[in-house]
Amino acid sequence: MTVIDELRTLSEKTGRRDKSSAAAKEERAAYLLLLPWIIGLVGVTAGPMLVSLYIAFTDYNLIQAPHWTGLHNISRMLSDPRLHNSLRVTFEYVVVSVPIQLIVALALAMLLDKGLRGLPLYRSVYYLPSLLGGSVAVAVLWRQIFGDHGLVNQLLGHLGIENAPAWVSDPSTALGTLIVLNVWTFGAPMVIFLAGLRQIPAIYYEAAKVDGASKWRQLRSITLPLLSPIIFFNLVLQIIHAFQAFTQAFVVSSGTGGPSDSTMFYTLYLYQVGFNNFQMGYAAAMAWLLLLIVAALTALNFYAARFWVFYDN
């Protein structure tokens, strides 16, 4: 390289320096901020994920070293009736419980957002069930409510309805009780909605009032658009979570997914396969199938978001 060439490139660079150095600065700042996450991804998350991807193509009983079986786990998935059943159960659960839970959560979040006395108390009360998590107490509780002689049937008895099913231990209604259980814990998305509502600048409403906009108009033109990133977040995450639903079915059915596999969620079956049947290879293959399904749905969600999610930039 000649000195002249060097000088030329140097002068070209200085011409663009301002812009490119600002961009470089921004990029450096971004990666610096992302550093903990990147270290976590590389050190804690990605490694085990890749290991599980490898295991998905092996026979791994947790005790002996895994050995390569190629596509055997995948062909087994195609012909496993319990797996197909668990997929069906999980889809049913997702399709029914996610919309109900989100609508209830959003409606109550708006109701509880402002203008009422004792709001903190209501909010706390509604959030309480979500605090219980997967505690063993919930299992007993749900049987007391939805059992043969449970609270629900006692109430129905007072109304003159006899011969109601034993909800929780009848395969045609057991999944329904878990959906109710999930809706009952709408507190988590509600809190996120509340936080989102709190973040909408009050000035927008002030301005709308000046313009004489009705409540309904405010809801449609301010609240929903400005809340849409949060609605989107809740939708995406609740779908992901619902596909991974485990604890409640595990606790309520004592880990069996019964009766008659009617509450055998996908992840519950995966857990049984991995830890009770010592087929971690097959479980890993199942996990990656679930990942593909959920990732596809999430991608779809992100695509659809272009048409309804409003970002302020």
Binding site: A23, E26, E27, A29, A30, Y31, L33, L34, W37, L41, T45, A46, G47, P48, M49, V51, S52, I55, L62, L237, I240, Q244, F246, T267, L270, Y271, G274, F275, M280, A283, A284, A287, W288, L290, L291, V294, A295, T298
Partner: peptide, 27 residues
């Protein structure tokens, strides 16, 4: 912030939520 691989990294981040924890807990 704007930086390269932003969309890729964001997608990777979302994917890490999607794998059931029971298969990564052993590794």
């Amino acid at each position: 912030l704007r930086f390269r691989f932003k969309r890729t990294l964001f997608a990777i981040m979302l994917i890490t939520i999607m794998l059931p924890m029971h298969v990564v807990i052993v590794p």
